[in-house]
């Protein structure tokens, strides 16, 4: 599973990094973000790209599991 670590990055970098990763066309990705805005932005983008997103939170950081 490919992993995108976007923690600490400012909007819109998490979306841009995720977008670049998704160009690889894998079925599963894991995206790490550390704020709610990035979580929502990446979720919205991934859903538009046809992935289902599940979010787990731990200590203010979010792990987004993207599956196709």
């Amino acid at each position: 599973m490919e992993r995108v670590d976007a923690r600490g990055l400012s909007c819109p970098e998490p979306v841009i990094l995720t977008r670049k990763a998704l160009l690889g066309g894998a079925k599963e990705y894991e995206v790490l973000v550390d704020n709610v805005t990035s979580r929502e932005n990446v979720t919205r983008f991934a859903e538009h790209a046809g992935y289902t997103v599940t979010v787990t939170e731990a200590g203010g950081e979010y792990t987004l599991s993207l599956k196709k």
Binding site: P12, N41, R44, F45
Partner: peptide, 14 residues
């Protein structure tokens, strides 16, 4: 967010 709004439209038509 206005900048985000335009970005979302351009990047993924949201």
């Amino acid at each position: 967010c206005m900048a985000g709004g335009l970005r979302d439209v351009v990047l993924f038509q949201d």
